[in-house]
């Protein structure tokens, strides 16, 4: 695949859920793209729309209540939203694979892990049972499970959470997909296992030459694996750029508050900064401060004013309000002052 060719292009995607009193869009005019072999991190808190975006690529959203309002999802040049159920079957697990958040419940308790890996091989690559079994053992070895010849006949309940997530990775990569979507793959795991799983995904992405979308609420995870970052807040993209740009020069106040919330051991902070308030409590107005993102004020403005993603540096986009051009410049100046210290 040529470098210039986009593997995935999401254009102007909007999704809402029916049945709630307000038709709040879960995903609001989101656009991004991904090159072959690249990793994109999608960051945001619960309810920001990051998982819904990922599920919509695989068309795993329950429709209804979910409804895709507008947009295109171009994968290898074809619009996935135009494909019927049968055509999507050929894409799922074959071209695009997915790893989910909960390894404890994501595997079928009644089938051996071997059977669960073999299934997609036999469906997509038309392998015989013996071939598929051999490949399943090979995949278990690749995800660094010990004694794969024995483990292939184990049931999920005989494995730990970390091992189950390895099995999920083995299933996902078994058919050599061009895109792997990881929906908070480490959230449910303990810290040491988290690091191991991330290292494994990083390593295998190179081995399999797979593009990855890493969905997480943890910027630490993103910095470890991604080249580009998409920050989402309440269904909208608020900032989009390379990892370096986002981490060194975060432009959106929400991104800044997220970054401030990463614990820094070297800094010996007494307290970790908070990202204030959960999504739903918009009516409470909380304090000001350097890195504190004021949800209420922001929400009021976003309701009242028009905003747009604007390219501030090459490849670095941020959502700003139409009449904020001047204050944005001030902000930039202030930032420059800070970095002098």
């Amino acid at each position: 695949m040529g470098d210039s060719k986009k593997l995935l292009e999401v254009k102007d995607l909007s999704i809402y859920f029916q049945g709630k009193q307000a038709l709040d869009r879960a995903v609001d005019h989101v656009s991004f793209s991904l090159d072959a072999g690249q990793t994109l991190g999608i960051v945001g808190e619960s309810g920001s729309g990051k998982s819904v975006t990922a599920l919509s690529i695989m068309q795993l959203l329950p429709i209804p209540p979910a409804k895709i309002d507008s947009g295109e999802i171009l994968f290898e040049g074809e619009n996935l939203l135009k494909k019927n159920a049968r055509q999507m079957q050929d894409v799922r697990g074959h071209k695009i694979a997915m790893i989910f958040q909960e390894p404890m419940t994501a595997l079928n308790p009644l089938l051996t892990i071997g059977e669960q890996i073999m299934e997609s091989l036999m469906t997509h690559l038309k392998m015989s049972k013996d071939q598929a079994r051999e490949r399943a053992i090979e995949m278990l070895r690749k995800v660094e499970i010990k004694n794969p010849e024995e483990r292939v006949d184990s049931y999920p309940h005989q494995l730990s959470g970390g091992m189950r997530q390895r099995v999920m990775i083995a299933i996902a990569l078994s058919c050599d997909p061009s895109l792997l979507i990881c929906d908070e793959p480490t959230t449910a795991l303990d810290v040491t296992t988290q690091a191991q799983i991330l290292d494994l995904i990083n390593k295998l992405k190179e081995d399999f030459n797979t593009s990855v979308i890493m969905i997480t609420h943890d910027l630490g995870v993103v910095s470890k694996v991604s080249e580009n970052v998409l920050v989402m807040y309440k269904g909208r993209v608020v900032e989009y750029g390379s990892v370096e740009a986002i981490f060194e020069n975060p432009l959106h106040p929400y991104t800044r508050s997220l970054l401030a919330a990463i614990p820094d051991v070297s800094n010996r902070q007494a307290r970790i900064e908070l990202v204030h308030q959960a999504v739903k409590n918009d009516d409470l107005s909380l304090t000001t401060g350097d890195n504190i993102f004021d949800r209420a004020t922001y929400q009021a403005r976003i309701n009242a004013e028009e905003s747009a993603l604007v390219e501030q540096e090459p490849g670095h986009f941020v959502r700003i309000f139409k009449n904020e051009w001047s204050s944005q410049a001030q902000d930039q100046a202030m930032k420059a002052g800070e970095s002098d210290e």
């Binding site: 799922r92 697990g93 079928n108 997509h124």
Partner: peptide, 20 residues
């Protein structure tokens, strides 16, 4: 959750419903 995993694997709907 495992039903969603099965769907994500792209196996046939029949197999998802009957086997899983």
């Amino acid at each position: 959750d495992y039903m969603r995993t099965a769907t994500a694997k792209g196996i046939s709907r029949q197999r998802i419903i009957l086997v899983h």
